[in-house]
């Protein structure tokens, strides 16, 4: 396991937060009638993050009287921005405000920086100042800033949903009340690289292999993003979706992360079925947001 929490970890992230606070969110909101339905309206939102840099997100608001709980789909390590994740029942938009954000480099937020996939995870890894993930985390936090400006939001029910960034969002933004996270590359990243040749973790392996003289620097930079060091800041109720027992981020590997998160936490090992895992997550979030007596809204073939 990694034991090298950077000595200036707190000041590093304080500086990012300060930099972000100096940039107005400056939202521009545009209706997207084509993706609006009888039960929800869809909007395209542009907002500013550090740089300043303009980002894009999809905001869906249920029809009717709020406030509504929120699912914030945090930026992914992939080029495509979805309104809601593929395979999610579109009807969840009748129950939740959903907000999906493209961090810089993803489609719709790719001007002037268009990231490659693979490629994004090691862009600028030469130094703390140039590593792109610092800005991507800022973008992720900025998404939470924006959500909290919306009058329709129930501020007691704001979930961050996605990969490692869901944990980072909650660690760095105290408005997040719930987390559904599937860690994929930022829990002890360097230690995990040696266990796999699969992307996205293999990106770090490619970098270290190709830049041996910079490998120590890369390792030290990645420690600022290691979920291990962010875990203690989490206050949100948390669901961690782990790999199956043979995977890199199995329940065994992530048991360390579970121990470090002080809030209420559930660690679910994959059942090697997107149906069973997906249903587990939908049941969890519904129970957390609405109580055990309310059924989740799931796709037809999961009923």
């Amino acid at each position: 396991m990694s034991k090298n929490r950077p000595s200036d970890f707190g000041s590093f992230w304080y500086t990012v937060g300060k930099e972000l606070a100096e940039i107005p969110v400056a939202p521009e909101v545009e209706s997207i009638p084509m993706r609006s339905t009888d039960f929800a309206d869809l909007y395209g939102v542009r907002l500013s993050s550090i740089g300043p840099y303009r980002l894009f997100g999809y905001l869906s608001i249920p029809k009717g009287e709020g406030p509504f709980p929120v699912i914030y789909y945090v930026p992914k390590n992939a080029s495509v921005l979805e309104i809601i994740p593929q395979g999610t029942s579109n009807e969840i938009r009748s129950r939740y405000i959903t907000f999906s954000l493209a961090c810089r480099g993803m489609r719709n937020s790719d001007s002037p920086y268009a990231a490659m996939y693979p490629g994004q995870l090691t862009d600028g890894l030469e130094s703390h100042e140039t590593y792109v993930y610092r800005s991507i985390v800022a973008d992720t936090v900025r998404g939470a800033d924006y959500i909290m400006t919306r009058p329709e939001v129930d501020k007691n029910r704001v979930a961050a949903w996605g990969n490692d960034n869901a944990i980072l969002a909650a660690a760095l933004h105290d408005s997040i009340t719930h987390i559904v996270s599937t860690p994929a590359y930022l829990f002890d990243p360097i230690e995990s690289v040696s266990k796999t040749d699969s992307y996205p973790l293999a990106e770090f392996g490619d970098y270290i292999r190709s830049n041996p003289s910079n490998s120590d620097m890369a390792r030290s930079i990645l420690e600022y993003f290691n979920l291990r060091w962010h875990a203690q800041s989490i206050t949100a109720n948390t669901l961690i979706m782990a790999d199956h027992e043979d995977g890199i981020y199995s329940t065994e590997t992530l048991s360390d992360l579970k121990e470090l998160i002080p809030s209420e936490i559930t660690l679910h090992g994959s059942e090697r079925s997107s149906f069973k895992d997906g249903l587990f997550a939908e049941n969890w979030i519904t129970s957390e947001m609405f109580g055990k007596e309310v059924s989740p809204i799931v796709p037809e073939h999961w009923r």
Partner: peptide, 9 residues
Amino acid sequence: ELTHTYPYE
């Protein structure tokens, strides 16, 4: 008709 999820949506 059978499902209401993206991308078919």
